[in-house]
């Protein structure tokens, strides 16, 4: 695992040529658009703008689709036949991933691999190549620095880009996977100057640290019952915008749907803990019957339970959930308030 980082330089033109080749090879190339990471059909679409805010949604749906069949069934009189799903393991290259996105798959990996290993997730993840891009601006919702990351974090990237000037990037090879990917393009690469690109990284303004995640963890343990939850519960509308745009929320539902009289499929669909019926028992009993309990679950899962279980915070600090919340509930503000 201890891969030694290599520092290279690539010109913007060569980088675009490389992208053109990725597309020509039939791989999926994703790059941040406005609402989402868009599939790049033509390199002229590529913006590579380090000052863009995070897209409204992350590229989570490419490892963990919003709705995917996990098996097909065919019923005859009293018999049933099951048919496996062929997961398409197409190579996916993400270009210009935000540092608050790059680590998301690593965070999710724990959940999808403890005990039972989710083959759908793992296969897709294996074929992912993440080219991160340093981030040079933030807004009031960003808080990557409070959850152990930063706008210049290389964590989770296979390759990492640092704009040196108008038409040059420093390209850091971070992982073995990244090296393998870039090997065929070595003609585009020149040796880089680590000190120089480090200077760029240092000059970047970073969001102020809003809270101490260790203290939050402790406070949550002591404050399962606290009137603060109620205030949030009054305003929150119980949608799942916050969960669905989140790069690391991972809850799902399993449902069968027939598409003919005798055939159908079992679907794995995104679901979210803010929905009232998420935990509703068939008997009508609901352990999280009111919104304040559901929001409490959201914060606790992210900043306490996941930490206890897997040693990582279930949040990258991207601020998407807050930016998109129709009633402006700001998770950074709420978590910063998780103290007496």
């Amino acid at each position: 695992m201890s891969f030694k980082m290599e520092e290279k330089i690539i010109s913007k033109d060569d980088l675009l040529k490389l992208c053109g080749d990725v597309i020509a090879k039939g791989h999926t190339l994703l790059a941040p658009g406005i609402a989402e990471y868009e599939q790049v059909k033509d390199v002229s679409q590529i913006r590579l703008d380090s000052s863009a805010l995070p897209t409204k949604t992350s590229y989570k749906s490419y490892v963990f689709p919003k709705a995917e069949p996990i098996l097909y069934y065919k019923r005859s009189k009293s018999d049933v036949q099951l048919i496996d799903v062929d997961v398409n393991g197409k190579k996916i290259v993400v270009l210009g991933a935000k540092p608050c996105d790059t680590n998301s798959i690593n965070i999710l990996k724990h959940l999808f691999n403890w005990d039972y290993e989710d083959e759908f997730f793992n296969l897709r993840q294996k074929h992912f190549v993440i080219i991160g891009l340093m981030c040079s601006s933030f807004d009031e919702y960003c808080f990557c620095t409070s959850v152990g990351s930063s706008p210049v974090s290389e964590e989770g990237s296979d390759l990492f880009l640092i704009p040196i000037n108008e038409d040059k990037f420093a390209l850091r090879i971070i992982t073995e996977k990244g090296k393998e990917f870039i090997e065929p393009y070595s003609e585009f690469l020149k040796d880089g100057d680590e000190a120089k690109s480090n200077a760029v990284l240092e000059s970047i303004k970073k969001p102020e640290v809003a809270f101490d995640s260790k203290q939050v963890h402790e406070w949550l343990g002591d404050n399962f019952e606290n009137p603060k939850w109620e205030g949030i519960g009054n305003v929150c509308l119980s949608c799942a915008q916050c969960a669905f745009v989140c790069p690391v929320c991972h809850c799902f539902d399993l449902v069968d749907e027939d598409y003919s009289y005798s055939e159908g499929r079992r679907m794995k669909n995104w679901d979210g803990c803010q929905f009232g019926h998420f935990t509703l028992h068939a008997s009508g009993h609901n352990p999280r019957d009111i919104q304040s309990k559901r929001y409490r679950q959201r914060v606790n899962h992210k900043f306490r339970y996941y930490v206890d279980k897997f040693g990582e915070i279930l949040c990258t600090g991207c601020g998407r959930c807050s930016r998109g919340c129709p009633v402006s509930i700001d998770i950074k503000e709420i978590v910063s308030n998780c103290k007496d």
Binding site: T57, S61, K66, A67, L237, S238, C239, A240, Q241, A243, F244, V245, D253, V255, E257, M267, N269, W270, G272, F275, H277, G324, P326, V327
Partner: peptide
């Protein structure tokens, strides 16, 4: 993405149980 934010913010989507949440029979695939 079926986040139902559109329904959640709508003052007139007040149904206690929206038709999309009804499973028997399932009118709208989830």
């Amino acid at each position: 993405i079926k986040c139902y934010a559109c329904r959640a913010v709508c003052p007139l989507c007040y149904c206690q149980r929206c038709i999309t949440d009804k499973a028997i029979p399932r009118w709208i695939e989830s």
